[in-house]
Amino acid sequence: MADEQVFDADFLQRLRTLFFKLRRRRLLKQKGVQQTKAVGFTREFKDYRHYTRSDDFRAIDWRLFARIEKLFVKLYEEVQEYHIHILIDRSVSMVEPFPRKRIATLRLAVALAYLGLMNQHRVSMLSFSDQVRQEVPPLKGQGHIHRVLQHLTNMPFEGVTDLGALRGFRPKRDRRGIVFILSDLLGREPEESAAALEIATSWPAETHVVHVLEPEEIRPQIDGEVRLIDVETQEQRQLTLTKRDMERYQAAVESFLEQLGQSCMRRRVDYVTWRTDLAFEKMFLELLSRGSALSQS
């Protein structure tokens, strides 16, 4: 797939515009680039407070004591660094029969990586199908975005979806992490997806499941006698389908999505359905507005 189709100039321009909007919104809300309430030991002054006995006396601002004869200590900003893990489903079902799913997934991954790199977070790109694979080592600094772009552009989509492979992903505890799982979650059985996401509760990270779906997968336009081919397993099934069958199919898919949403909610995992036919910016802003730490950093 050509680069222009995934990360064309128009997309990158729209991505920059999107982040300028995000930055302005953030600056209007708070002063400083750090949004956390915690205080740390950086050189960036944050505030004063009264001295208490437990405080280090070296932190007393003697100049201020000289003016008002009261003991105050200086507070400094604590700069937090997140490790953003972006897990991309690289199974065949992400590219066939609907290539828009791959494009939407890669664009979302790039946007998240761009956001992370711009905010001086560490970004890891991983992929999974039947096993988890490190696509890009942890990167920091916005200069690495081109590397990310180059790697994702050439990343092959192959194999079958096995959400059980997520058990092989273990984010380290040294840094606070944010995990984004970008997948269509189409495993062998519908129940398998919800069970596989159970592993997310053990991760020391904030987890977001982005369920990438093509509208055709929710409401397929199939009628009559057809031979269906599973793009991952190449299993074939000849069926005679009717409108009533399609209504039953749609009900089953919607039930599956509902089940997934409730399962994630019970596990405090953010779950969002990413429909490829909707505007990217709208969907991305909605994703960030769901309370992710990334959007507040």
Binding site: S93, L228, I229, Q238
Partner: peptide
């Protein structure tokens, strides 16, 4: 006339429909 071949992401939900009259 051969039936139309349609690729799908998964057969999971179709299987749930076809279990009654799979031929």
């Amino acid at each position: 006339r051969r039936p139309k071949r349609i690729k799908v992401s998964t057969l999971t939900f179709f299987k749930s429909l076809a279990h009654v009259y799979r031929e």
